[in-house]
């Protein structure tokens, strides 16, 4: 599971460099998220702009990551598109996350 974490403006932006988060990688995704959020900023944004497909196992793993990050910290989503957005809307899981169109604005906010 190829996830990449970079810190910008005190935000831990985690980019998923995979086309799918599905049943065959859900546990690996959850483990990778845990290790990438053990340290670092309290604000985490998961960048899904390269992800084309999420099934219910993948969705469950993303929700599990938010639960694991807990009340004291924040986990948002960015870059939902097409079928991924559809799965979040259908299951109402879009309502439990703050969703950003993309991470560009977050990464550049204090640069200018």
């Amino acid at each position: 599971m190829d996830l990449n974490s970079t810190y910008h403006n005190d935000i831990n932006i985690i980019t998923v460099n995979e086309a799918r988060i599905d049943a065959s990688v859900a546990i690996k995704f959850k483990d990778a998220m845990r290790s990438l959020t053990e340290t670092g900023p309290d604000h985490v944004v998961l960048d899904l702009s390269q992800v084309r497909f999420v099934d219910s196992s993948g969705l469950g793993a993303i929700v599990a990551s938010k639960k694991q990050i807990g009340y004291a910290r924040q986990m948002d989503l960015a870059g939902l598109s097409g079928d991924v957005e559809k799965v979040f809307c259908l299951t109402r899981m879009d309502s439990i996350f703050e969703i950003h169109a993309n991470v560009d604005a977050l990464a550049k906010r204090e640069a200018g």
Binding site: S56, A64, T91, I96
Partner: peptide, 10 residues
């Protein structure tokens, strides 16, 4: 929050 049970609904 639910981590599963979405499949048949979808």
């Amino acid at each position: 929050l639910p981590e599963g049970g979405f499949g048949w609904f979808m």
